[in-house]
Simulated scan of single mutants.
Amino acid sequence: MSLILLFALFVFPPLVVAGTLLQWRRRRMRAARKSPLTSDLLRPPGQRLREQLDALGDEVDLYLMMVVVGPTLVFAALVAPAGEAGAISPMSFGVAIVLVVLVVGYSTRKLLKFQREQDRLRVGYDAELAVGQELDQLMRQGAAVFHDFPADKFNIDHVVISPVGVFAVETKGRAKPILEKGKAAQVEYDGKALKFPTWIETEPIAQAERQAIWLRNWLTSATGEPIAVRAVLAIPGWYVKRTGRGAVNVYSGRELATLVSRGGFDTIAEDKMQRIIHQVEQRCRTIEPTFNRSVKK
């Protein structure tokens, strides 16, 4: 009797049973406890991007495994049996080569696509974290700050509620070119478009304005009174040169420290501000405590 058969008959079943019993005991012990937190948590900066990055990581791992393991599986299925029989035909070997090329080629193509998407999301995620950290400092000035606000089929990166107004802040992360020491990456804003060194964008401006309008309408409906919302676009890491004015205010990351201290804003009464905060907070508490999620698994 071969060693593999002995393992399959006498070693593997007890291991499976022991593993199952240990898992069952662990689940029983965890089921008797619960998290000390009694409510869901607020969404952190970049929560949606973090979830997308996690999902992409699974895809990257899958296709990386296909690139590494795929050729071995193909040869094990088509060539190895014929080799053991001592009759490897040129046709079977040729079919195996074609399949390996197809599997590796397809997997590599998908892998590169997902890795490019990962790079894009990482830049955006880092930008949202940086902007979130800058905005959190506004709490010292009496503002309430919420992140990754869930709207209708989209998210508003940050919502700032202060005595001088409500702000819907959209963040855009853009990788910078490598410049000579002492030179800053600059984007020009003329009130209608963002002019980067080698490209021009208008969609971020339109997106920030749409989101501010949506938030204004939702808050007005939720609170039963008119709520004005100002549209803000943050581009951390870039120097913003303003050559015109538009419906959207564009800031670099560092400039957000002055968001609620600039003049020309209307004041919001304390009771009205609290009603706005309550509505936004209820919508942002969507993160179940990690312990509770792990118990359910």
Rank of each mutant, 00 (worst) to 15 (best):
169 V>C: 03
244 G>P: 13
121 L>E: 08
277 I>L: 08
172 K>H: 05
145 V>M: 04
55 A>Q: 07
160 V>C: 05
275 R>F: 02
187 V>N: 10
18 A>R: 06
1 M>Y: 05
142 G>S: 01
205 I>H: 06
262 R>H: 07
107 S>C: 05
105 G>C: 09
188 E>C: 11
42 L>P: 10
58 D>F: 13
185 A>M: 02
116 R>P: 05
216 R>N: 14
46 G>D: 04
264 G>K: 09
51 E>K: 06
52 Q>S: 12
222 A>K: 10
253 G>W: 02
151 A>C: 08
100 V>F: 01
78 L>P: 00
176 K>I: 05
72 T>N: 08
24 W>P: 00
137 Q>M: 05
246 G>H: 15
107 S>H: 04
14 P>C: 10
39 S>Y: 03
109 R>C: 12
148 D>I: 02
4 I>S: 05
274 Q>A: 12
206 A>K: 14
50 R>T: 12
226 P>T: 13
107 S>N: 04
97 I>V: 14
148 D>V: 03
107 S>L: 04
98 V>D: 00
260 V>Q: 02
5 L>W: 03
133 Q>D: 13
118 Q>D: 14
72 T>R: 03
171 T>Y: 02
3 L>I: 11
48 R>W: 01
60 V>C: 13
183 K>E: 10
222 A>E: 15
220 T>G: 15
71 P>C: 04
222 A>L: 06
264 G>A: 11
237 G>H: 00
49 L>W: 02
122 R>T: 14
44 P>D: 03
85 A>V: 00
230 R>S: 13
268 I>R: 11
235 I>K: 06
279 Q>D: 06
